[in-house]
């Protein structure tokens, strides 16, 4: 009996890492640019379709397709921030919200136009392979996807921690005026950050196709999921996003197993409400000054 629970938890952890990577992008964008990307999940779905097409048409494995997709998303994010969103930085929440919701509507329905409303499975050849670890039976593809997600996270952490540009971006997040005073090109750093955030979600989406079918209507659901994770973990805290992803992944897996799969996100929202009430800054967030 314990083995079943363990299996469920492990599966939740592996899925949670993908969620975490997706949420990491959202967290980075909000933490630095202070714009809430309400089209985040929609971008993840675009990446899913990109990986789907690359695999179906060119036979490129999503684990590899992840890299060009992440690069393409970086370019899209950089351009988007530079051309449109930059004008909205510092404007009221609801204005940013309408802009990005408009974008989300365009993306979701654009996908609907191109790919139709039906779910598109990638049908990877190794989708049903599994490994046995003691009493655990683990899907191989989830392991690969989780490892890849961890690798991307590690790369991002290293970038923010050890490079000059990464440090500069953190300076913008910490003290915008100070950053501008010492001569940082804030506008460029914002565009870079938005690009990096989208690269995260691009990579996460590409990996997501290995465990979920691509459907246009997934977009809003993923946006909400990413928000839930980021709030639970702490907006602006990158470790928090990962921890939140794991928590939500495990809670979804357990709720799906113990109660009903259709009610699993209810538990995520309950968790979100509880965290907002008890610790509004999130589990790992800093208290707002």
């Amino acid at each position: 009996m314990l083995a079943i629970y363990l299996n469920v938890v492990v599966q939740g952890v592996l899925t949670g890492l993908l969620y975490g990577l997706m949420a990491l992008g959202l967290s980075a964008i909000f933490g630095v640019v202070r714009v809430v990307n309400f089209a985040h999940g929609e971008f993840a779905v675009v990446a899913m379709y990109a990986a789907f097409v690359l695999f179906r048409v060119y036979g490129i494995d999503p684990m590899w397709a992840m890299l060009p997709i992440a690069v393409a998303f970086f370019v899209i994010g950089y351009a988007l921030q530079h051309t449109v969103i930059d004008a909205f930085v510092g404007r009221p929440d609801h204005e940013q919200f309408i802009l990005l919701v408009g974008l989300a509507i365009v993306i979701t329905n654009g996908l609907l136009l191109v790919f139709g409303p039906d779910a598109q499975p990638a049908n990877l050849p190794y989708a049903f392979d599994s490994v046995m670890v003691g009493p655990l039976i683990i899907d191989e593809v989830r392991v690969y996807a989780a490892v890849a997600a961890l690798a991307v996270c590690a790369a991002l952490f290293a970038f923010f921690r050890f490079t000059r540009t990464g440090t500069a971006i953190r300076a913008c997040a910490d003290n915008l005026v100070g950053a501008a005073v010492v001569g940082l090109n804030v506008r460029r750093l914002y565009a870079l950050t938005f690009g990096l955030g989208l690269a995260c979600v691009g990579a996460a989406g590409a990996l997501m196709i290995t465990i979920a079918d691509a459907v246009p209507s997934l977009g809003p659901a993923y946006t909400l999921l990413a928000f839930t994770i980021v709030i639970v973990g702490g907006l602006g805290s990158m470790t928090g996003a990962l921890v939140g992803g794991l928590l939500i992944g495990v809670s979804e897996a357990l709720a799906g197993f113990l109660v009903a799969p259709s009610m699993k996100s209810m538990f995520s929202f309950a968790l979100l409400i509880a965290v907002l009430v008890l610790r509004p800054q999130g589990l790992l967030g800093k208290k707002p000054a």
């Binding site: 408009g102 365009v106 979701t108 136009l113």
Partner: peptide
Amino acid sequence: APGAKAVFFGLTLM
């Protein structure tokens, strides 16, 4: 096609 109207709607909002 389904979605065509909404694409324009989203663009108009933006």
